[in-house]
Structure formats: structure tokens, C-alpha cells
Design a protein around this nucleic acid. Structure first.
Length: 479
RNA sequence: GCCCCCAUCGUCUAGCGGUUAGGACGCUGCCCUUUCAAGGCAGAGAUCAGGGGUUCGAAUCCCCUUGGGGGCGCCA
């Protein structure tokens, strides 16, 4: 049987990174098995519709390359792929359940106190609906209907017994019916609940593998009961462990980055993001960690999805991003870096050359500004930077070196790497010194920083002769 | 409160009855070098949450405890 997976997001206005991982796994499983990956929009909550958020979903899938085979924008044999356009379908199936005795109309008011009373003397009444409308006589139902009283349709669940299902990653899950309640299938406004629409759509769309967050585990038995009531075969259920933040809590908008767009803005590459989140809850069984998207498709296997929650570690993402950045074509890296260079530098320097110099050093493009801003603006820096133990530099030696360098460099008629290097090197030879003690003060004078993304000669070349000499003078002035 | 799930270095993880408990990020040091970085190498870091069993033998199987997460919506 052909594998068919789906990604079924709600239009919330942003792409949660945990959601993206669900999409990724669904995509990978479909591609790996030469199956189909379907996009379905779950917009059944009219109160929470966020304008234009379907766009966000399309854009997210496009930028990460998780192309779907069927969906609202692409069509397909089992559409429509937007739930709000499938209301007639849900109504039809809800009525079928009604007529076959698996569901009933409930006329209770929204705010009515209708919680199931606990069997024993328990504390909370938190057991859901008590099923009172299930006990309405036929005459009462007819009367309510005649009066035009609004109603919802609820699933009828026996209070006795238990229901199990075999989750592909969590194994056998059994829930006692006492824990279940007669959940709403069709809301008063005619829209289905997630619980109902999901089952109907997954069946009608021929989904073979249902992947979703593990928060749905507890309610899956209700869905199983629905499948059985309809006489439908049950797809494979693959629940995924959560991704947590550093505090060990659910990734939330309040605490740091959660949306794909947050990471994209920092300059993380879509492929690096995919690579990283793929590893949060899955591993290839080998020691490989660097994966291109194609590599993931090749190696992905749902059998190696884990069960324990993972904490999102941006440091590792950053490292992985650096790996992907190194593998990029220089011109592509340059194009990306260009978005992060300050205007002043773009106009004043050979940024193409700069990109080439820093490509292997950058991990997170958002850090670029801090790495290169010294090139356009020499900030105040402490004289102590000239002191370096390893190179045995002191303020005195630095002053001497800079003074020599100033006169040697000012005499140069050409300003390119080899020429500058030769000049600096001759200065070292004249002093009978290694090159380190010369380079150190030069680099400090040119950057005012203990740490720079590239060496002294490269900086001098980038800066140009005039600015280089000016900065050397500034340095001498400090010593 | 009731139910479900999870538990190996700080973090991501390998492990699926017998291993010196492996790898990666991060951290530390060394080498290389034109400083830092990058790269190469090395090191520190896990009484496998705790306690009981089962077994000749348990990180691996079972039970309890603890900790964490999730569910109990006319949200998804």
C-alpha cells in the first residue's frame, strides 16, 4: 500500500519549530517510501482564525523545501484540503454516527455545569461531560428539535471497558473508558472539532501514517473508537516526543525563539534547521550528524524515533549551521552574509572578499555585525590589548613595531596581500624577530579587538592603505 | 484530583542481558598558524534518577518511589 502522510497545521500565524519537525518527519517518511505527503489546513476554529496565516504555512514549507504533493494550492484526488470547506462531509458522517447509535445530540448550554460526577469521593470533578443528553427520551429530543434549540453532536462512549491502540513509538497504550467522556464531534456552529475532523479526513484522504505531537496520545483511544464505529481500518499512529526549551518547559513564544521565522531571521539556513530538528528525537543509528535534506530522506527511519522529550539547544544548532555554511558555494554564502553587513561596510569595503575570509568562521550570521563592525568604526580600546604573553609583546615593543611598520607601509606603492605581507615580514627580519610579535600589535592597532574574524594582513588589505596608516598612528598615540 | 507517557555526561544521543558505557555540541589543554577563530589532536565530564526484585550476570527485564512532561475545552 502506498504510504500517505499528512501535515495538518492550524493557521496560527507562525510556524512553531516543533510543528515543523512533525512536518519534516511526515515528509521524510513519505519521500523515503516513495509515498505522498499531503498538506491539510485545519481551520475549524472560527474564533481563532488569523488572517493570512495560511500564507505563513505555504512559505514555511517552501523555504524549507518540504514540498507537498497534494494540498489546497495543488489540489489532489481527495480534496478539498481545507477543513472549513469540508463541512458538508463532517455533517454527513456525524449524522451517520447519529443514525447508527454511536452519537447523540446534546442540547446543553456551553456554561452549564455538566461535569461527570466522580465514582468515588474524589476531589476534582474534572472528568468531562456527564452524558445527560444521552439519556434524553426520543420525545424530548423531538421537542427540543421542534423548538429549534441549538445542539452539538457528541460521541457516545461506553463507561465500561477500556480501549487500546498500538503506538508505533510508544507501544501499547491503554486507557480506561472512565477517563473518557462523550466528546463533541460537531460544534454548535456546524464546524467539526479537531477530534472528529481528523479521523474523518485521515480516513477519507487515505492517510496511512498519522504523525503528531504526543499531547494527543491520551485522546487517541477516542479516535480509535470513532474508527471502529465507522468500521474503518486504523492507520499507524506515530506520536512524537515534545521539544522543550532550556528551562525544560514547552517551547513558547514568551521564552525565546519558537517560530521558524525567528531562526531564519538570525540567518540559520533552512537546511541546517531541518538537520538539527531531525536529530531532536531521531538518530540514524550511526555517528553521522551532518545531513543534507536528501541525506535525511535516504537515512530516515521511523523505527529510530525516540520517546523522551528533547531540549532545544541553540548552541548545537549554531555549530551545525556553521557546518552547512562551510559547505556552501562562496557566492551563496556571500549573498546570505550581505543581508547582515552594515550599510557602511558594504559601501566602503570589498565585501565579497570579506565574505570569503569569514565564511569558515561564521556560525550564526546574526553574529556577523559584531564580528565586522570594527572595519568601519574603530572603537576606543584599552592600551593593555597590546600586551600579549605568548608573543612577548609590551607597550614599548608594540610602539617600536608600529613606528617601524608605519614607515615601511607608507612607502608601499601597491596594496595587496602579498606585498603587505612581504613588508611586514621584512620588518620582522630586520628586527631578527619572529613574525608573531609584529603581527600582534598590528592587528590590535587595526581592530582594537583581542578577537577578530581574520588576520592582520587581511584586515590591512580590506581597510586600505590610508586607513591602515591612520589606525597605526592612533595606536602609536596610545603607547 | 484522576489517567497516560518519559528518565544514560550540562545538552542531543548510541546502547536493546556480559562494553574500559560510544559519539556530537559545549567546556579545558596542546599542535598548527599571522593573534583570535577555523582545522588537527587530547582531556575532563554519566555511582546509567533512587530503591527493591528476576538472573551466574542488569543501563538494558519486572515492581515501587521520586522527578519531569502531557491529557481531562463547543482549542488544536
Amino acid at each position: 500500500m502506498e504510504v500517505r502522510t499528512r501535515f495538518a497545521p492550524s493557521p496560527t500565524g507562525y510556524m512553531h519549530i516543533g510543528n515543523l519537525r512533525t512536518a519534516l518527519y511526515s515528509y521524510l517518511h513519505a519521500r523515503k517510501n516513495k509515498g505522498k505527503f499531503i498538506l491539510r489546513i485545519e481551520d475549524t476554529d472560527q474564533a481563532r482564525l488569523v488572517a493570512d496565516s495560511i500564507r505563513v504555512i505555504y512559505d514555511s514549507l517552501a523555504v524549507t523545501g518540504l514540498e507537498h504533493d497534494e494540498g489546497p494550492d495543488k489540489g489532489g484526488p481527495v480534496g478539498p484540503y481545507v477543513q472549513s470547506e469540508r463541512r458538508a462531509i463532517y455533517k454527513e458522517y456525524a449524522e451517520r454516527l447519529l443514525s447508527e447509535g454511536h452519537a447523540y445530540r446534546c442540547f446543553c448550554e456551553k456554561d452549564e455545569k455538566t461535569e461527570k460526577q466522580p465514582d468515588e469521593e474524589q476531589e476534582g470533578p474534572l472528568l468531562g461531560y456527564d452524558g445527560r443528553c444521552n439519556r434524553l427520551s426520543e420525545a424530548e429530543v423531538k421537542e427540543n428539535l421542534a423548538k429549534g434549540r441549538p445542539y452539538v453532536i457528541r460521541q457516545k462512549i461506553d463507561r465500561e471497558g477500556q480501549t487500546s491502540f498500538n503506538d508505533f513509538v510508544y507501544g501499547l497504550i491503554t486507557v480506561d473508558h472512565k477517563q473518557l467522556d462523550d466528546q463533541i464531534l460537531l460544534k454548535r456552529d456546524g464546524y467539526p472539532t479537531y477530534n472528529f475532523a481528523n479521523v474523518v479526513d485521515d480516513h477519507l484522504m487515505g492517510i496511512t501514517h498519522v504523525m503528531r505531537g504526543c499531547e494527543y496520545i491520551s485522546s487517541t483511544p477516542k479516535y480509535i473508537l470513532l474508527y471502529r464505529a465507522f468500521g474503518w481500518s486504523i492507520p499507524e499512529h506515530i506520536h512524537l516526543p515534545h521539544i522543550l526549551n532550556e528551562a525544560g518547559r514547552k517551547l513558547s513564544k514568551r521564552e525565546g525563539s519558537v517560530a521558524l521565522s525567528d531562526f531564519l531571521e538570525k540567518g540559520y539556513l533552512p537546511e541546517a534547521i531541518l538537520n538539527y530538528i531531525a536529530l531532536l528525537g531521531w538518530n540514524p543509528g550511526t555517528e553521522q550528524e551532518y545531513f543534507t535534506k536528501a541525506g535525511l530522506v535516504e537515512k530516515f527511519d521511523i523505527a529510530r524515533i525516540g520517546r523522551s522529550p528533547a531540549i532545544f539547544d541553540e548552541k548545537k544548532l549554531s555549530w551545525l549551521n556553521g557546518q552547512h555554511l562551510k559547505a556552501m558555494k562562496p557566492e551563496d554564502a556571500h549573498k546570505l552574509f550581505l543581508k547582515f553587513y552594515p550599510e557602511k561596510i558594504v559601501t566602503a569595503l570589498d565585501v565579497r572578499k570579506l565574505s570569503g575570509l569569514i565564511q569558515s568562521k561564521v556560525e550564526k550570521p546574526a553574529d556577523i555585525l559584531g564580528m565586522v563592525s570594527f572595519l568601519s568604526e574603530l572603537d576606543e580600546y584599552p592600551m593593555e590589548l597590546f600586551v600579549n604573553k605568548k608573543n612577548k609583546t609590551t607597550p614599548e615593543s608594540s610602539r617600536a613595531v608600529l613606528t617601524d611598520l608605519k614607515s615601511i607601509l607608507s612607502g608601499l606603492t601597491s596594496w595587496e596581500y602579498a606585498v603587505i605581507y612581504a613588508a611586514v615580514n621584512s620588518c620582522a627580519e630586520a628586527k631578527g624577530s619572529k613574525i608573531g610579535p609584529i603581527m600582534w600589535p598590528l592587528r590590535i592597532a587595526l581592530s582594537g579587538l583581542a578577537v577578530t574574524p581574520t588576520g592582520a594582513i587581511e584586515i590591512a588589505e580590506l581597510l586600505g592603505k590610508d586607513e591602515t596608516l591612520r589606525r597605526i598612528s592612533v595606536g602609536i598615540g596610545k603607547l
